[in-house]
């Protein structure tokens, strides 16, 4: 069975984000993309390792 998918033709991962960043930041897009990616990686890694729970459980501001 072949998979039905609405996927566009294969996009390199992160290409859309890269394009969006280029519009937002122009020349400095790759530098900022690098900083943001590093930060997100740290965040994800810390969350994986430490398994933090939200505090407070119920949001203060809805």
């Amino acid at each position: 069975d072949s998979e039905r998918s609405a996927q566009p033709p294969a996009e390199r991962p992160g290409e859309r984000r890269r394009a969006e960043m280029k519009i937002l930041y122009g020349e400095d897009a790759s530098k900022i993309l690098g900083m943001e990616t590093a930060m997100q990686l740290t965040f994800d890694r810390n969350c994986d390792r430490k398994q933090p729970k939200y505090w407070p459980v119920i949001p203060l501001k809805l």
Binding site: F43, N46, C47, P52, W55
Partner: peptide, 26 residues
Amino acid sequence: GASDIDVLNFQVSDLQTPIGVQKEAL
């Protein structure tokens, strides 16, 4: 600890809350 890139969540440790310490928190 760290922030996600959309500035929606902060990952922190040793959170001192009004009712005690939570070791790891978002």
